[in-house]
């Protein structure tokens, strides 16, 4: 089996997962007042869950460009670390323009599967990226077109899918590491303060999420610095 086909097969479960989550993104984008084609373009050009969700929340208010940049840099900072990490595992031909082009596909799940390889070739990485990209694109299209005709109880319930995915990433790690659990609870508590307290409530959501996440990660780094072997990201 060629590396391309092998990569494509490994991408199928990711693609199916993305299909369901981006369906929700499509519904949410329509609920925020976007057209279906805008939702699809956002998904095709950005290919990320948390960043897009925060992004459309900021886009509905005009002129918050700096805020958009800060929130995206914070939310997506993890990708830099993944890119650094995967750059250590690539084959010798996987460099230069190939890295500039394929770096676009560095999502949490594609990174996780690619990291599982002994050595990552560019052909394998292309194959691996195809199904997740298609799943994310078509899920958004379907969600934004079909979202309107679904009964409201189903629409409401589907809005939880994207958060269900976040829970699926965080909960198992928080369960196996006291440090992660503490840091996660710290971040949740901090952002709740921004959400409910009279003065802090006026801070817009992108900034509030950024501040909560950065302060909590700094707290984690100082209180529970990782040992080398813990660093599986």
């Amino acid at each position: 089996m060629s590396a391309f086909v092998r990569g494509m097969k490994k991408g199928i479960p990711i693609g199916v997962g993305y299909l369901s989550v981006s369906f929700t993104f499509g519904i949410m984008a329509i609920a925020y007042g976007f057209d279906w084609w805008q939702a699809v373009i956002i998904s095709m050009t950005t290919l990320t869950s948390a960043g897009q969700l925060a992004g459309i929340g900021i886009m509905v208010i005009p002129g918050q460009y700096i805020e958009m940049l800060i929130s995206q840099l914070t939310i997506n900072l993890r990708y830099s670390f993944m890119s650094v990490s995967l750059s250590q595992k690539t084959s010798s031909e996987f460099r230069g323009i190939k890295r500039w082009l394929l770096g676009f596909f560095m999502t949490d799940e594609i990174f996780a599967v690619a990291s599982d390889e002994e050595e990552v070739t560019s052909v394998f990485f292309v194959g691996l990226s195809i199904m997740p990209f298609l799943g994310w694109t078509f899920g958004t299209l379907l969600g934004s077109l079909l979202g309107n005709i679904l009964p409201s109880a189903i629409m409401n319930a589907l809005c939880l899918a994207i958060y269900g995915m976040f829970v699926a990433i965080v909960a198992p790690r928080a369960r196996s590491s006291k440090a992660i659990l503490t840091v996660v609870l710290f971040a949740a508590a901090l952002h709740s303060l921004f959400y409910y307290l009279p003065f802090l409530k006026t801070v817009s959501s992108g900034i509030a999420i950024s501040i909560s996440a950065i302060v909590s990660a700094v707290f984690g780094a100082v209180a529970f610095p990782i040992r080398e072997q813990e660093d599986g990201v």
Partner: peptide, 21 residues
């Protein structure tokens, strides 16, 4: 410490996005 910060960032972002929204 930089590695630790980068290690925790994905989790704190997801936690802050989820709770309480």
């Amino acid at each position: 410490y930089v590695r630790s910060f980068l290690f925790y960032i994905p989790f704190t972002v997801l936690a802050a996005m989820t709770v309480p929204a």
